[in-house]
Structure formats: structure tokens, C-alpha cells
Design a binder for these strands. Structure first.
Lengths: 292, 292
DNA sequence: GTCATCTATCTGTTTTTAAGATGGTATCTA
DNA sequence: TAGATACCATCTTAAAAACAGATAGATGAC
């Protein structure tokens, strides 16, 4: 005879309830069944799991230790069944989501925390490319879903939906010449602008370009580091500025022209022809339900 | 009906052999048994594990995935049984070994590699205290076994056995005044000696003291760093010097007096009254079998 | 002491599992 | 193309295991 899952189940429940009878009740079996199962298990293992001295059985040291192992095995069975159910429901084995850094991290974390609960068996890959790179990844099938800035021209193969608007602020370093003046449009043109760089070369890349002199940087966080050093000014979404460790050294100057806080639309993007599995569908709805 | 270990076993073996019949032979069962077990498992999980199109069954994508899970579960069963056997054999759950740094690391690594194979279920804690601290740990029960320098006065509660002799060399930095001369005993007294520091204050601590001016340092590796800087000279076991990343900057000067390479005896130490379990016994024998 | 509750064990029954036999199918060879 | 071989599914029957129910002994609460 060999250690079976039923034996382990009886063992674990008995250890939890502290009584074979109670375990039998919880398992909808007769008390004798549980009693013999545990007895058999003990014989198989060659040691006593419970001490039957008193009224109710108590775990021996070996029992304590093996209880941990038994729980692991039973958990793994649940896990296996969960994975099987995912297959049954045609849940994706793997989901790749590309998200622009302008999407607020806090909300993202909430969404994916829930996702992990609903789809514990889906392997998730999160990419953080820049701007148009998101749509490129979705277009080429390297990502299943994308979250990105609204683009004027989006390939027709892609479906999209607006998630909300992220306010964009002009930001510069504490000691930058623009830090202390009311800035007008011409002032911006006179200083170096630091822009988000994307791998792909599209018209979108230039949309926020104001100054003739620009640097391209592939990370918002690095941009803020550069801005802090006084190397130039930049348009950055406010939540990135707030969450930045260098926020204290940054200034959001007053603007002379019509209160520029250009809200940028954030879009959810997917490929129309590629069918969405349940996990992707759920994510789409969840993202859409959370207005920024 | 529920997923059972026998089913998983049949599944895994069938996947490994690529044939239900072969799996049946390996399991010493009839082919029909394996066939129905896998069939039942598939029904339980609600999906096909194998595709029966061709001559021999091949895993479906779901089968591939679930094979990993099944293997984990079966491995954990083996593990559980292993832990149980340890209890049966009264193997220690946990073993604490205190080892002086002068014991050669390479040998130590070999010994514990073998130990891990023989006693995969024993939780091991390795401590590296200095000199007499080893015997203190063994004496107070904080360690089960100790490996240390021979001490002149060892508490009578401790049993011990010599493992071998480690040659001790006098070492100094490349630019130290002693580096270029034939050193005599009086020379040593004139320069700062760097000694191994122990937490406990015993006579042993002073045994290797030669110079009036000394520093105490609790790590051989740090001692060599200091020696390299020319801060002083030290007695250090040669394997520590050789294994040191700063070996190139160190010098072992010629000695004028009777070829000092004071071999220090390395002892295995245990507490006489505390009974040794199988794991400790094995370790003692293994250490003793390996002469340094 | 009495009562309620627990566990171990026995007994007969039910369920599950295994083996053996059979038939159908794919693959290889002559 | 026919035959041989190895494979899997299925059916039937026999063996084994698991189960419920009953009972007896033990423990702790009152």
C-alpha cells in the first residue's frame, strides 16, 4: 500500500479539527473511514502522526512536520485542477500586456492584483515600451493588449477604447531659467526639451515637440533625473512627477498661455483579428471599468 | 471521482515512455489498467491529456502543461516519504555545526555536498565563529558539532578528535618592512601583529601572540586585507592565504628561526552528554575520514 | 458516578480497481 | 497489397479496497 491523497486529506483535516470524528463529518464520511485511513497512513509511513493519549488526538512532532508536507501536496493537487480548468475554459496560458509608463502605476497594481486572483494560472508578461512601440507590439502579435497614449493615426487592424485622460505638466529643474518666470510658448522654444523616445519612428514621436533643440530619452524616470540636473525641460504626466524620488528638486512653472495641462488620452489597444481569451477579455473590462 | 496519485503516476510514466503498454510494464500492471486510469484522469480533469491519433499517444498542449504539475505532486510525495523515513531513523531535524575558518573551505564543501545527499531532509546551520567560540557554542548546546584549533585546555564535557594539521604561515604586505628581509623572532616583536579575535576571553586567545602591539580582528579575510595595506603582519593558515583574492599583494617572508610553519591541529569537537543522531554521527565519521 | 464524546475494531456490503480476453487501428515489412 | 506486430479501448469477471454501521473501551465534563 502506498501513501494516497485521500489519506493525506484525512490527515490534514483531522489535524485541523483536532478530532477524527469531526474530520469525518467535514468529509461526509463515517468516523471509521477516517480512523482507518489515518491508521493506514501511519503504517505506511512507519510512525505515529497522532498521539491518542488524551480524549482528542494531538499531533506528534513527526505529525507536525509531515502536516506541512501533506498540505503542500494537497495544495498542489488543487493547483493542478485549477490549471486543468483554465484549459477547459480556454483561458490563455500566457498573456503579454504592453503598458506605457504614463499609465498610473497605482491603478495598474490594483488591476493586476485582481487579475492574479481571477486567473492564478495565467503566466503574465508586462512590457513597458514607449509610446507607439505599444501599438507596434500589439500589431505584430508580440503583445495581446496594450495601454498607450492616444495616437492620431492608429493602424486599422487595431481596436481601441479610451480609458481616461492623464494630465501632462511642463516640468523643469529647481535652478532652471524657466523655474522662476511665468513661462510663455516662446520661452519653451528657447530651451532644450527632453522627449520620450520610442523605438519606432512615427509621426506621433514628434507630436509634443515644441523646441528645436531636443533630447530623446526612453524612460520617464531618467527624463526626470535629467530635468533635475537642469539639462532641459519636459512634458511629463503628473503622477510620474509625484511618484518620483526627485520630486522635491523639480518645479512645475506657471504658464502664461492658456493653462497648459494638455490632458493626454490613454487608450486600451488590441488586435481586432486575434481572438481574445477569457483572461484578456476580463482585463479589457477591468481596465475600462477603472477611469483614471 | 477525484484526481488520485495512482492516476498521476500512470500519466507521468506514460508520458515518459510514450506508450501506455510500456508504462504498464514499468508499473507491473496490465495495459488495461493504465489505459483506464489515464482515461479516468482525463475525465476528471475534463480534457484530453494524450492525442491518440497515431500509433503511439502524444501529449496534448494541456498534457504538456499538466505533466509538470503532476511531476511536482509525485516529487512531493517522495519528499514526504523521505521526511518520514528520517523520523523513523531518528535522524535529527536540524543540525548546527560551528567551523573555524582555518578549516579548508574546499574540503568543507565536499563534505557537506555528500552530507546533503545522505541527509536531504536535515536542516543544516553552519556557523563560522572564531577559535574558542566554537567550543563555547558546542558546550552551551548552540552547536551540535564543532571544528576548531586544538586548545590546550578543553572543557572536560567535550569530546574531541584530531582531524589533521593546518600549516600556519607568517604573512605581511608587499611593502611591509619585513617583506624583504630574513625575519627573526625579534623582528616580529617590533611590528604590529594582527590576531584573530574571539568573543570569549580565554588563554587560547593569547597563545599566538608575539608582538606587544596587536590588533584583534574577527575574520581571516579582513586580516589579509589589513596585512595587504601594510598595517601589520599575521599568522594565517596557508589555504586561507592561497584562496585570498589579495594573495598577489602578500608576501610570506623567509624566517631566520627554525622554519616556522607551526602546524596547528584541527580538532573535531562534540558534547559528550548530548547523544548524537545519525546525521551527526555520519558527519563525525566523514570529517574524520578526510585528513587535511 | 453518569453522560456525552471520542477512537479502535469488527462485519457485511458497496465501490473501486485490476487482469484477461477481444476487437479495432496504425505502422512497418515483404 | 497482405501479413505481422505493437498499440489502445472496451467488456467481463475476479480481487481488493473502502465504506457505513454497530460495538466496546476510554476519557473528560458535570
Amino acid at each position: 500500500m502506498t501513501v494516497s491523497l485521500d489519506q493525506l486529506q484525512a490527515f490534514v483535516i483531522a489535524a485541523e479539527t483536532g478530532s477524527f470524528s469531526a474530520a469525518a463529518r467535514r468529509l461526509h464520511k463515517a468516523q471509521s473511514a477516517v480512523s482507518t485511513q489515518i491508521s493506514n497512513l501511519e503504517e505506511d509511513l512507519g510512525l505515529a502522526l497522532f498521539s491518542r493519549a488524551g480524549r482528542s488526538p494531538t499531533l506528534t512532532p513527526a505529525g507536525e512536520r509531515l502536516l506541512l508536507e501533506a498540505r503542500v501536496i494537497l495544495d498542489r493537487r488543487e493547483h493542478l485542477i485549477g490549471v486543468a480548468r483554465s484549459f477547459e475554459a480556454h483561458v490563455e496560458q500566457r498573456l503579454v500586456v504592453a503598458i506605457d509608463e504614463i499609465y498610473p502605476e497605482r491603478i495598474m497594481a490594483e488591476v493586476f492584483a485582481e487579475f492574479a486572483e481571477h486567473f492564478p494560472h495565467v503566466e503574465l508578461e508586462l512590457l513597458f515600451p514607449m509610446m507607439e512601440d505599444v501599438s507596434r507590439l500589439v500589431l505584430t502579435g508580440k503583445a495581446d493588449l496594450g495601454v498607450m497614449w492616444r495616437q492620431e493615426i492608429l493602424p486599422t487592424e487595431l481596436g481601441f477604447q479610451t480609458l481616461g485622460w492623464v494630465p501632462i505638466k511642463m516640468v523643469c529643474g529647481k535652478h532652471h531659467p524657466l523655474a522662476k518666470v511665468r513661462v510663455d510658448w516662446e520661452d519653451l522654444k528657447r530651451h532644450r526639451q527632453i522627449l520620450v523616445a520610442a523605438h519606432s519612428d512615427g509621426p506621433e514621436k514628434q507630436r509634443l515637440r515644441v523646441a528645436p533643440e531636443v533630447w530623446w530619452v526612453e524612460s520617464h524616470w531618467v527624463i526626470l533625473q535629467l530635468v533635475r540636473q537642469g539639462i532641459g525641460w519636459a512634458f511629463v504626466s503628473s503622477h510620474v512627477i509625484e511618484a518620483s524620488p526627485v520630486a522635491a528638486d523639480l518645479v512645475i512653472p506657471e504658464l502664461q498661455f492658456d493653462d497648459f495641462d494638455l490632458p493626454v488620452a490613454v487608450e486600451l489597444v488590441w488586435h481586432k483579428q486575434r481572438p481574445c481569451g477569457p483572461a484578456a477579455k476580463w482585463l479589457r473590462q477591468r481596465f475600462a471599468a477603472t477611469r483614471i
